[in-house]
Design a protein around this nucleic acid. Structure first.
Lengths: 199, 199, 199, 199
DNA sequence: AATGAATGAGGCTTCATTCAT
DNA sequence: CATGAATGAAGCCTCATTCAT
């Protein structure tokens, strides 16, 4: 009876802080965000944050991992059931845009802030980002193996090019909201699938 | 010899500080970089920096503008003499990678740090970045007008996709230096030119 | 006992800082006083000061208000029970000198430092100083109405002349301590009461 | 031919700086006034100021002395020709108000800023202020000796009371300009002369 | 576990003063 | 004498983190 309740509270606070961090980081940027801001947004005391997280960097790390884990497991699950590498890439792109649309704050935070934090880059092995990129490169590989994608291009380069493109478009969209993400998504698919297609 | 000296000194210090800022921002990131670090690197007193720049943000802005102005004017000049939109795009990509190779610090600074600074995003109309993107989109436009590039894709989206891709690859390269930029450059050209080619 | 503790601590620190500021401002002057000095004198950390006060100016403002509020309420209370305007004025003068004797630092701070601070003069409506002057002018008014004080003199001028005289004497005394304030007080009473007396 | 010119130039710059300091100190206050401000107002280079003055404090000291010397010599000259202590006091008060009217900046600077500067108070024997006060006290003395002013009041106290009153009224006037100094002057004369009159 | 008052290290910036020209 | 670019010491303030309750 108590155990469950405590766990629930723990989870609640942990998630509340994480969500609050997403909101605040997106609004002010990691460096201008004060821990107090996050605490107020999460409706907890400043000190409480340090029960659930080691420090400010740690919040960003966990926010990133939480989002990435969810995204990657969903992407892998959906893509696992598909046969065509083209469909897989298309679906991956769709999922990326969907994620950005659902968590409007996330896009700004994840890529900008995450890459930014210096301490972070050095001490933290960014496993989940690697995993994210690997999902792309394995699709490319598969396409090349199946003779659908051109061979004169390295998956390791495509994965970063695609990530860069998605990231930039997503970021710009979340800042300006000038165009529809759906339209954007279709054009990126056209661009990359034609770019990869064996001729 | 004497007449220009003051001006030359001014220029020297201004440029020395700017260059030092590039080094320090790249090494530590904008937020972890202390003004004192830049001063020491430029071999001037802390206060001297404030003769040439309004504040820390201002250094970043000018660093960015200096690099962008140089790059854009060079890109425009070279591209102006070309006929084929494909060649133009190819050359633009080459120039971007060349710039990154010549100024290894710049890539990291320009895109990461620049987008980051909050004040910056709000108060500073980023004219040069717009100009940079416009160079790309006008090439795309031209290609579409000449019937060489597919029409079912907006130049406004391609320009950001390409920038995102170049930026990410450049950044990753400057951090890891694992692959050659030349190789990378050719593959990106293949990817985008095929992606754009009318079929 | 427990309930009030937090409040009491707050009050203690607030008052400790205020008192420390009085000591330091008097010793060094507002501009030469460093926030660190006040913190050390109050035995708190530098940052603690900014929990209770917005900035250095704010400390001065609150110090002034605290003293003025106390003085004015005491003056009004005592004077309220008196009939003769002469007695009232006499008592007011006495109280002013008493205040200076009890808080030797205050005199220097209040008038010198307060008028000084530039920001202060502009953003801060000095309500309590007005109130202080009004106590004087209402006594003068009353004396004129009762036919005891001469009519060919404006209360608005007397109030400032008296304040100026009291302030200067108090300040000089706190710096030199050459004469007794009691003696001084009697002579000022003589000077102003005769100066005001209807003839 | 040259000698005279150089002297004139020296004088010009010295006086220009002094005058500029008056303007700037009055506008911003001694502590908020930057040496650069004064230099610009005087239309000289920053460094030039240090040819004529030891440091920032030194400017204030000389400004004060210049004004006081002029005032005191004029006051002594005019008063020397008078017989009645009452007339002398009246004339002194008039001169004080006239000085303030002619040099609107001076009032603010002289008393506020001068008393303020801590270094100043300690290292500088304020001879001219003493002289100023002595002019008043000697008039009082004379009045007492001639049996016109009451004896139960010390000239040393009256001189400060009068200075305080004049200073406060002058300062307030220069800040608010709400009332005419002429009117003010007559009332102060009434107040003090009646206050001093032997009864 | 939760709180939030307290801490104090450290950065950006200002500005009086100097000195080479 | 005059200049004004350069200096660098020093202060205000912020804010991540701690810890007594």
């Amino acid at each position: 009876m108590r155990a469950g309740k405590v766990m629930t509270n723990r989870d609640n606070k942990y998630l509340r802080i994480l969500h609050a961090a997403g909101v605040i980081f997106a609004k002010k940027g990691f460096f201008y965000a004060r821990v107090t801001d996050i605490a107020r947004e999460a409706d907890v005391a400043d000190g409480t944050i340090y029960i659930y997280f080691k420090n400010k960097d740690d919040i960003l790390i966990h926010l990133f991992e939480e989002i990435m884990k969810t995204f990657i497991s969903k992407a892998k699950e959906e893509i696992g059931n598909m046969d065509s590498p083209q469909d897989k890439l298309r679906r991956f792109i769709e999922l990326h845009f969907q994620m950005s649309q659902k968590n409007p704050h996330v896009a700004e935070v994840i890529t900008l802030e995450l890459r930014q934090s210096n301490k972070f880059m050095k001490e933290y092995k960014n496993v989940w980002f690697k995993e994210y990129l690997d999902v792309i490169s394995s699709i490319i590989h598969e396409g090349q193996d199946k003779g659908m994608f051109r061979n004169n291009i390295h998956p390791g380069i495509v994965k970063r090019a695609l990530f860069g493109a998605l990231d930039e478009l997503t970021l710009h969209w979340s800042l300006s909201k000038k165009y529809s993400l759906d339209e954007c998504q279709k054009e990126i698919e056209t661009l990359f699938l034609n770019g990869l297609k064996k001729t």
